[in-house]
Design a protein around this nucleic acid. Structure first.
Lengths: 254, 254
DNA sequence: TGTATACTTGTGGTCTGACCTCTAAAAGTA
DNA sequence: TACTTTTAGAGGTCAGACCACAAGTATACA
């Protein structure tokens, strides 16, 4: 009878550090933005070498939980939740992720997010969304700033959805998509049309019409995708055939 | 005006290692399952210290790209794509993720995945799904093995969707959810009902009925959620008031 | 002959302590 | 006051020794 997969406590010291910091976060001792003690001092406290401590901190930093600033200190991440920054990018290199797949994932997630935002959004969110829409119309001729408010709008929708996990997933994908996006030279007419779509989405959310919000967001994102020629190709490269049963089982048991 | 992004070329050596390995993966020199050279030798090749090399490898391992085995070697990950295992768990501790939110994310993602699988699934996937369904019926009285085939069924649906990014997101969430799930003592009648739902999902996918597959998967997952009492509470508990920074720092020296 | 134990080898894990680089704030100077 | 220089403290890197683990190989014993 095969045992079910269970991860190996490979790195004792590393996990010790990770679990220690984890508990500090869980009991509220450490909060987003807080600075942890200097490495030399912290290592002495935990009775481990500085090297091991650094391994653990590096682990946390890789996953976006900690933020290291050379010459300043190490801090608990305080931005919007997001998985390891290079994560998606690296996984893409490893498993051959395509840009259209990122768009597809984003459309699916964010459409639902809009619906949830329409159901659960609070007054603060409505106000913030309205502000961003106004800013978008005010910066139609300023692409750089327009993009900022565009991103902000979507981020607020994520927050309004009341599900930080979905928000974090979106944030990760958007972040990976951002580089490609900034290269697209949007025309002014595109921005006006885009701004008006955002306004409609905002109205649907404020009016608590989940179905409509979802539909509008889906429409908006598909248009944005088309504007960058990132649609799914009609002929996909042949996806790898499913692995044999034995191979599938092998990865499921330890 | 808020700045957009603040890139962090913090760790020169670390990123050097990461980018090097990344390029090795991208040009096909390294493939999933491959072993990288021993640390001492690799460090000499890259003309950096072993410590720095280890920092970079640790970074990749934290994100699930590499797999380190003490006393054996370091390998490129070969399992299903998945973000750092502890990632979601740690982010949860940091941002207060709730179990019902994980379920919600899973339901949304996997329902769509079922629809995509119905659109794009190939013969191999249909065959593999049929096999898993059969195994589920054959192991109704063997909870441990039943669970294996349950997980396998969902994993094949992910593969059949043709979007490895969505599959990776699901895998990450499922992995985090797994611990809680295994504790639930399922009754035999529950398993029979569950197996029949899987069979219906399979039939919808094979018949290429996306809407039906999506609906059935949604229904199945909501039932599974209910079976574990993980529904979204009607009244969410208010987040605890943050302690003062001085108080937090005081208890940091354990 | 066969099996069990001990040894050897190779790999990652940890420690020590010194030195380098970066940042921000203090001190000095015009 | 405003600018420049110095300095203290933080993370980054290095080198080499030694520890711990896993696998294979050789040896000893029954």
């Amino acid at each position: 009878m095969p045992r079910l997969k269970n991860e190996e406590p490979n790195t004792h010291r590393t996990m010790h550090v990770v679990n220690h910091i984890r508990s500090l976060i869980e009991n509220g001792t450490l909060q987003p933005g807080d600075k942890i003690p200097p490495e030399r001092e912290f290592a002495r406290t935990l009775k481990i070498s500085r090297a091991s401590l650094r391994t653990g901190i590096g682990y946390l930093a890789a996953m976006g939980v900690m933020k290291i600033r050379h010459g300043v200190g190490t801090f608990v991440a305080d931005g919007p939740p997001e998985f390891g920054k290079a994560s998606l990018s690296l996984m893409g290199a490893l498993h051959g992720f395509q840009t259209w797949q990122m768009f597809e994932a984003r459309i699916i997630l964010e459409s639902h997010l809009a619906a949830l935002a329409a159901e659960r959004g609070k007054e603060e969110h409505h106000a913030a969304l309205a502000e961003e829409v106004a800013e978008m119309f005010a910066t139609l001729d300023d692409p750089a700033n327009y993009l900022i408010h565009d991103l902000m709008f979507h981020r607020i929708v994520s927050q309004a959805s009341g599900n930080p996990i979905l928000a974090a997933l979106i944030e990760t994908i958007t972040s990976a998509l951002y580089d490609k996006r900034r290269k697209t030279v949007e025309r002014s007419t595109d921005r006006r049309e885009s701004a008006e779509m955002h306004r409609e989405i905002y109205r649907a959310i404020r009016a608590r019409k989940p179905v409509e919000a979802r539909k509008l967001m889906d429409q908006h994102l598909r248009m944005a995708q088309a504007a960058q020629g990132m649609e799914r190709p009609s002929e996909r490269k042949p996806s790898p055939a499913p692995r044999s049963k034995s191979a599938r089982l092998a990865s499921l048991v330890s």
